[in-house]
Design a protein around this nucleic acid. Structure first.
Lengths: 128, 128
DNA sequence: GATTTGTTATAGTGAAAGTAGAACAAAGGT
DNA sequence: ACCTTTGTTCTACTTTCACTATAACAAATC
């Protein structure tokens, strides 16, 4: 179940990308499953086909799905495997400014551990 | 010492904002210190005054500095104090999509702890 | 009194985000 | 074979964001 907020300052294609990622984390989408076609999903969500297409390509660039032209988008992410070096480096790049912000607020390393733990729980709640 | 990359896909005002935050975390800037004037810093960095101004207002909206018109920008962040509720919630909002991405790559909670730890070390290295 | 300060206003360029419509070739279903 | 669906590609448009540029203002500083 995907819910988009067109009023959000977060672009639609990023909202969609993140929600698909979280669905995979929850196990609602598993390795080998195929995503709906860009036209079908765009129709369901009431947004443009190209916006969905952009989300799919975001996921493909991260190595999470594989888009096979005229076939469909297949999930290849495997939560049991270890992250690739490139994926790890991209994570660090995204994480660093947020961690710096937390530190300047006075968060300790232990605070971060607790924060991460609660976020993971939140993501894994179904019907999120 | 601030170094900006005009080729980066990260906006200049966000690069500057993050580097000021990291300087505070490292202790190079302390509570009560004043930042250079927007004109002076813009001149040093070779960018426009308004870009620096935008960074300062970003920092003020996060409660990290206080801008006093005709006076200067004073650092009010105190790493010894605990984060405010609003600051905490903003952190969660920024962190969630990145954590979800890490999970889909197969990172465990322990992996995240190690990752955070290494990022904190990296931020605290002087001459970063 | 002259300089510096942050603020405000206007204006412009370039890129990104999103929408829209159309056409294409290939795969799939009938 | 025929038709539909598929992802891709192209053009085109609007809106917003990022950044620069110049100017003027009032208040603080020296």
């Amino acid at each position: 179940m995907v819910i988009l907020d067109s009023e959000s300052n977060v672009p639609l294609y990023l909202q969609l990308r993140t929600q698909i990622i979280e669905s995979i984390v929850r196990g609602e989408l598993a390795k080998g499953d195929t995503l709906p076609s860009v036209r079908a999903l765009a129709g369901d969500l009431g947004i443009n086909m190209h916006t969905v297409n952009k989300s799919y390509h975001e996921l493909e660039s991260k190595g999470i799905i594989k888009i096979v032209p005229k076939k469909g988008a297949v999930i290849i992410a495997d939560a049991k495997k270890h992250a690739l070096k490139q994926q790890y480096e991209n994570l660090v790049e995204d994480l660093r400014p947020v961690v710096a912000e937390g530190l300047v607020y006075g968060l300790s390393e232990a605070d971060f551990q607790q924060l991460i733990s609660s976020i993971i729980s939140k993501i894994k709640e179904e019907s999120s």
